[in-house]
Amino acid sequence: MVRKARNTGVAAARRPEVRLPPLGPFGGGGLEPDGDYDGLELAGLDLAGENGAGARFLDCALRDCVLDETSLTGARFIDSVLTGVRGVGTDLAGASLRDVEVVDARMGGVQLHGAVLERVLVRGGKIDYLNLRNARLKDVVFEGCVLSEPDFGAAQLERVEFRDCALRQVDFSGVRMRDVDLRHVAELEVARGMEGLSGAVISTAQLMDLAPAFAAQLGVRVED
């Protein structure tokens, strides 16, 4: 059952508190598999097609970088900021993001299936076809962003907030939710997985908007 919105009883997500130290410049060259990047600023770089699988980014800032088809499978981002990154087909499958801010990203077809996100803020920007199948999200906030056709299939969401953002044609099939706050979503379109909303909190207005979909899910016909 989807819980009706209340003023209390919803555990708030813990936001990341990223305090970057003075950063050194990236030394040039491309990314390396299993590379170790500590306290670096990667700014304005074209990393399209680079292979950084298994790399570790600690206290790093990626600013205005191009990530088309960049392989970052199994990579770890810790206490880091990604600002203005853009790209299509970026592969972050199985990656780990902890205490990370993603700001004003413009991306499409991002692969984050099987990834682990903890204390992550995604603010602003637009991400199309985000694949979060089988991912684990804990203390994650999506704020002021547009997610077009995101796939949360079979993911685990705990203390996740969607604030002032658009969720267009979202797939919640098989999702397990706990303390997921959808009350402040500006635009909510559920394409599949209405049953996955169990454990979410919605507003009364959203309940009315979703009523036809709930009825269809239960096999109920509504006639005047």
Rank of each mutant, 00 (worst) to 15 (best):
R133C: 13
A215L: 11
V110Y: 01
L42N: 01
K138R: 15
N131T: 11
L188D: 00
V120E: 06
F152G: 03
S173N: 11
D224Q: 14
L147I: 09
F152K: 13
P150A: 10
A5E: 14
R159G: 00
A43F: 04
E189P: 07
K138F: 09
R159C: 05
A11K: 04
R106I: 09
V66W: 11
M208G: 13
L47P: 03
E187G: 02
R3K: 06
R15I: 12
H113F: 14
D181I: 04
L67T: 05
C145H: 03
L45P: 00
R136N: 06
V10Y: 00
D128K: 12
A13T: 08
G174W: 13
A5P: 03
S198F: 01
R221D: 12
V141T: 12
G49I: 11
V103A: 12
G35K: 07
A93F: 10
L42E: 03
L112C: 10
R123Q: 14
A211F: 11
A216K: 13
G9P: 03
G196I: 08
A12D: 07
R163A: 04
F26K: 03
D151S: 12
Q206D: 06
H113E: 15
Y37D: 02
S71R: 13
L47F: 10
D38T: 11
M194S: 01
I78R: 14
G39N: 02
V2H: 06
S148G: 15
V100L: 13
T73A: 15
F152T: 08
L207C: 14
P212S: 05
R63Q: 03
P25G: 00
C145D: 00
A166V: 01
T73K: 12
E161Y: 01
R133L: 14
G196D: 10
V81D: 00
S203G: 15
R168Y: 07
E149K: 10
S173Q: 15
V201R: 00
Q169F: 13
G30T: 15
G74L: 02
L58K: 06
L207T: 10
V88I: 15
E41D: 11
Y129V: 11
F57I: 08
I202L: 04
L40P: 12
I202G: 02
R14E: 05
E50I: 04
G9H: 03
L31A: 05
G39S: 10
K126R: 15
T8F: 13
L42D: 04
G29K: 08
D181R: 05
A213K: 05
L20F: 04
G89P: 13
P33V: 02
V2G: 04
V10L: 06
G35D: 04
R106W: 13
E50F: 05
F162N: 02
A93H: 02
Q111R: 13
A13R: 01
V185Y: 02
V66Q: 08
R98G: 13
L147D: 06
M1E: 08
F77M: 08
V2D: 07
E118F: 11
Y37H: 09
G74D: 09
R63C: 00
Y37V: 09
L130K: 01
V10S: 05
Q111N: 14
L112Q: 04
D59K: 09
H184C: 12
L132R: 12
R14M: 08
E195G: 13
L137W: 14
D36Q: 15
A213Q: 14
G74K: 06
L62Q: 07
A55G: 02
H113G: 05
C145F: 01
R168N: 06
R163N: 10
L157Q: 00
L132H: 14
E161V: 02
